[in-house]
Simulated assay, not measured.
Amino acid sequence: MWRRTGSGIVKQCVILDDYQDVALACADWSALRDQVAIRTLNAHIDDEAALAAALRSADIVVAMRERTPFPATLFAALPRLRLLVTSGMRNAAIDLGAARAHGVTVCGTASSLTPPVELTWALILGLARQIVPENRALREGGPWQGGLGRDLAEHRLGLLGVGRIGSAVAQVARAFGMRVSGWSPNLTPERAAAAGVALARSREALFAESDIVSIHLVLAPGTRHLVGAAELARMKPDAFLINTSRAAIVDEAALIAALEQGRLAGAGLDVFAREPLPTDHPYRRLPNVLATPHLGYVTRDNYRTYFTETVEDIRAWLAGAPVRQLTPVPPSRP
């Protein structure tokens, strides 16, 4: 499990899913040099048995958001594991009860809300102004101005969830001159007013009246498949659906059917039921889908925060005083 150096025993740390191979460059890891041997895995390991084999000698594992699930069966297969650090302070892919039962401390880091807000607007603007097809036509010698863009001003943005991220999205919408409505299971008139959002009469009204619906809810039993065939059927045929939150909030089969049948103008998606997205998935070929590979939190500044605080978490744990521990709690209000 450990190797010995002149200064003592060194623990083994594995950094998972470092797709861009930037984890070691985004923070100063030198403070751990004499105590921790670090290796990174740049490719995603989807098979649990293969993952367990890759992590068998690890005392410490660093996970990037929810890219790799940690169910009870994986903890049981990793008896040496003692510290799991995740980026962010919420990770639904980690069975925290199982971690505690197997003696694994789980710590997190800060995470800025700015990157997902900005990506939400990148998807909205990309769809509204047909950025991808117009750019492709320009590069490939296609039609000069092949379509008409969509205005945002005076049109309605419907927010499914008006928490920290939803409120920030609303602020940008108002700068564009949009009308903004919001709904969530716990949204009160007072909270809506504080966010500068009109409280929708009902969830059904939000879908029926909005030109763009953007999802910013926490995934919980009550929000899983909250957006299904009935909700999509209520949307205007020229409306857009944006999801930078969690894939399971939307019934994927229902959304694909609506897009294939032209009952919805388009979808801007950054989250998927399976990641990485299979190469034959319909989202990769549907012309009315603008999709990004779960980039909501993937920015230089956010990564610096993640890995700098990961180093702090490891140092604190080594000193016997772990910080920023995750504990099982009820989902916060969306």
Rank of each mutant, 00 (worst) to 15 (best):
residue 2 W to I: 13
residue 4 R to G: 09
residue 4 R to M: 13
residue 9 I to D: 14
residue 13 C to M: 15
residue 15 I to L: 06
residue 24 L to Y: 01
residue 26 C to L: 07
residue 26 C to T: 15
residue 26 C to R: 15
residue 27 A to M: 04
residue 27 A to F: 02
residue 32 L to M: 09
residue 33 R to N: 05
residue 40 T to D: 09
residue 40 T to Y: 06
residue 48 E to C: 11
residue 48 E to M: 14
residue 50 A to H: 13
residue 53 A to T: 15
residue 53 A to N: 13
residue 55 L to T: 03
residue 55 L to F: 00
residue 56 R to L: 06
residue 56 R to H: 15
residue 59 D to K: 05
residue 61 V to I: 05
residue 64 M to Q: 13
residue 69 P to Y: 08
residue 69 P to C: 03
residue 80 R to K: 12
residue 83 L to H: 15
residue 85 V to A: 07
residue 88 G to V: 01
residue 89 M to N: 15
residue 89 M to D: 10
residue 90 R to A: 08
residue 91 N to D: 12
residue 92 A to R: 14
residue 94 I to F: 03
residue 95 D to F: 05
residue 96 L to H: 15
residue 99 A to F: 09
residue 108 G to L: 00
residue 109 T to K: 12
residue 110 A to K: 10
residue 112 S to T: 05
residue 116 P to K: 06
residue 117 V to M: 02
residue 117 V to L: 03
residue 123 L to H: 02
residue 125 L to V: 09
residue 125 L to R: 08
residue 129 R to S: 09
residue 129 R to N: 09
residue 130 Q to C: 11
residue 131 I to P: 02
residue 133 P to D: 00
residue 133 P to H: 04
residue 144 W to Y: 13
residue 144 W to N: 05
residue 150 R to V: 03
residue 153 A to H: 10
residue 157 L to W: 08
residue 164 R to Q: 14
residue 166 G to W: 00
residue 168 A to N: 10
residue 171 Q to L: 13
residue 173 A to R: 04
residue 182 G to F: 06
residue 187 L to C: 04
residue 189 P to R: 11
residue 189 P to S: 09
residue 190 E to Y: 04
residue 195 A to H: 10
residue 196 G to Q: 06
residue 198 A to F: 02
residue 201 R to G: 12
residue 206 L to N: 05
residue 211 D to T: 08
residue 212 I to H: 04
residue 219 L to G: 01
residue 226 L to V: 12
residue 228 G to L: 09
residue 229 A to G: 02
residue 230 A to I: 09
residue 232 L to T: 11
residue 233 A to R: 07
residue 233 A to P: 02
residue 236 K to Q: 13
residue 236 K to R: 14
residue 236 K to T: 00
residue 238 D to C: 06
residue 241 L to T: 05
residue 244 T to E: 00
residue 245 S to C: 06
residue 247 A to V: 05
residue 248 A to M: 06
residue 251 D to P: 01
residue 252 E to Q: 14
residue 255 L to K: 01
residue 256 I to H: 10
residue 256 I to E: 07
residue 260 E to S: 04
residue 260 E to D: 02
residue 264 L to E: 03
residue 268 G to I: 04
residue 268 G to Q: 10
residue 269 L to S: 05
residue 270 D to E: 02
residue 271 V to W: 07
residue 274 R to S: 14
residue 276 P to G: 06
residue 277 L to Q: 04
residue 278 P to I: 08
residue 278 P to V: 07
residue 283 Y to M: 03
residue 287 P to T: 12
residue 289 V to R: 14
residue 292 T to Q: 04
residue 298 V to C: 03
residue 299 T to M: 09
residue 301 D to Y: 07
residue 307 F to K: 02
residue 308 T to E: 10
residue 312 E to G: 07
residue 317 W to S: 11
residue 319 A to G: 09
residue 320 G to F: 00
residue 320 G to I: 02
residue 321 A to T: 13
residue 323 V to P: 05
residue 327 T to R: 15
residue 328 P to N: 06
residue 329 V to S: 10
residue 330 P to L: 12
residue 330 P to N: 12
residue 334 P to K: 03
